[in-house]
């Protein structure tokens, strides 16, 4: 199983010196949580890569392991209870899991930054946003208080917060949800990182504000030529901005593909089911297609393919053998025994 998964990962250009080499590569990553009820295998052999200027969307429902993977990359998992028994996270070819705590800390924030879903709880409520933005420069670059404040205003302008000069002394609760998320983006951008991981950055926002924030993020990514990992459960958000998508289910990547191909012709029954089950704004269907059953309990993941109890195509082999991520086309893989039938059905 691992061998086939590796070939899929290999299909991306591999020589680190090459111009289009991936910024970040996750290889065969496993994360487990040791709880009283047993071992929860949250991430189970995940492979993906992002290059500079590229947007990878990681799509999955709650419990799919999409956020845990991101936390493992950032090095912000609580260990214990979490454990990484196996895998590599290569940043510019160097395995971050083998770095010292100090090396890791230098990468975090400066090279890889993260944006969270809930901006209000990610910001310190008793410090002004200007102070919190400036802190990045004071700590990492040793700037004076005055220079740091100037930089903070510059950043707030950059993320299009109106009247940045007047609002630099305001506290997080004085900003609206959309503005707070902009401040989070500004903080992530502060040290001009190479890679941004955005974990459901617009889920808590209203649609009209969502569009503003997504646009801003895409624009800044282009300007700074950053890699972007966008973690989301929303197929709609992904369609607009991502270059490629990795769909996760029960800790594994079940399908990865360039964005257009995945929407046009999914190669995994789970992806197909998800696409069919969302109502469309531009047409009114009769009955919605519904994927039957419930997301798996990670303490008792079904044997074989984890999706088999919910899959309309499941056969005996699906209940016994874990499907490897088979190569569907260049840069495309599907972890389904019957991907050919799915693709053409």
């Amino acid at each position: 199983m691992t061998t086939t998964e590796k070939t899929a990962a290999v299909s991306a250009p591999r020589t680190p010196e090459a111009a289009g080499s991936p910024l970040l590569q996750v290889r065969d990553l496993h994360v487990e949580f040791h709880t009283r009820d047993g071992v929860v295998k949250a991430v189970n052999g995940v492979n993906y890569s992002v290059s500079a200027g590229e947007t990878l969307a990681v799509l999955g429902e709650s419990g799919s392991g999409k956020s845990v993977t991101a936390q493992a990359i950032m090095g912000i998992l609580d260990m214990p209870p979490a454990k990484i028994p196996q895998g590599e996270i290569l940043f510019r070819g160097e395995d971050m899991l083998k770095m010292t705590v100090e090396q890791r800390r230098r990468v975090r924030g400066a090279k890889i930054a993260m944006i969270f879903q809930d901006a209000l709880s990610s910001l310190n409520p008793v410090l002004s946003v200007g102070y919190q933005l400036g802190e990045m420069f004071r700590v990492h670059q040793g700037l004076s208080k005055k220079d740091a404040k100037a930089k903070a205003i510059e950043l707030m302008d950059k993320v299009k917060i109106p009247a940045a000069k007047n609002r630099v002394g305001d506290y997080p609760h004085q900003f609206s949800g959309g503005m707070r998320q902009r401040i989070m983006i500004a903080m992530a951008l502060a040290l001009e990182p190479d890679l941004i991981i955005a974990d459901e950055p617009t889920t808590a926002l209203d649609v009209t504000v969502q569009a503003q924030v997504m646009d801003l993020l895409a624009e800044l990514q282009r300007e700074y030529h950053m890699g972007l990992i966008l973690i989301t459960h929303d197929l709609g958000v992904v369609a607009d901005v991502a270059d490629k998508i990795a769909v996760m289910y029960a800790g594994r990547i079940v399908e990865n593909a360039p964005v257009r191909e995945l929407y046009k012709n999914p190669a995994h029954p789970y992806t197909r089911g998800l696409l069919d089950s969302i109502p469309r704004l531009d047409q009114k269907g009769q009955e919605l297609y519904a994927i039957k059953g419930l997301p798996p309990n990670l303490l008792h993941v079904p044997s074989g393919c984890a999706f088999n109890p919910r899959c309309p195509m499941a056969q005996d082999v699906c209940r016994t053998d874990v499907p490897a991520l088979a190569k569907v086309a260049d840069g495309r893989g599907s972890a389904c025994h019957f991907w050919k039938e799915t693709l053409h059905g």
Partner: peptide, 17 residues
């Protein structure tokens, strides 16, 4: 029938915990 079958399998998978 569809969801109740599914629900039953979910419950079986939680069994004992």
């Amino acid at each position: 029938s569809a969801p109740s079958v599914a629900a039953a399998s979910e419950l079986a998978s939680m069994g004992g915990v």
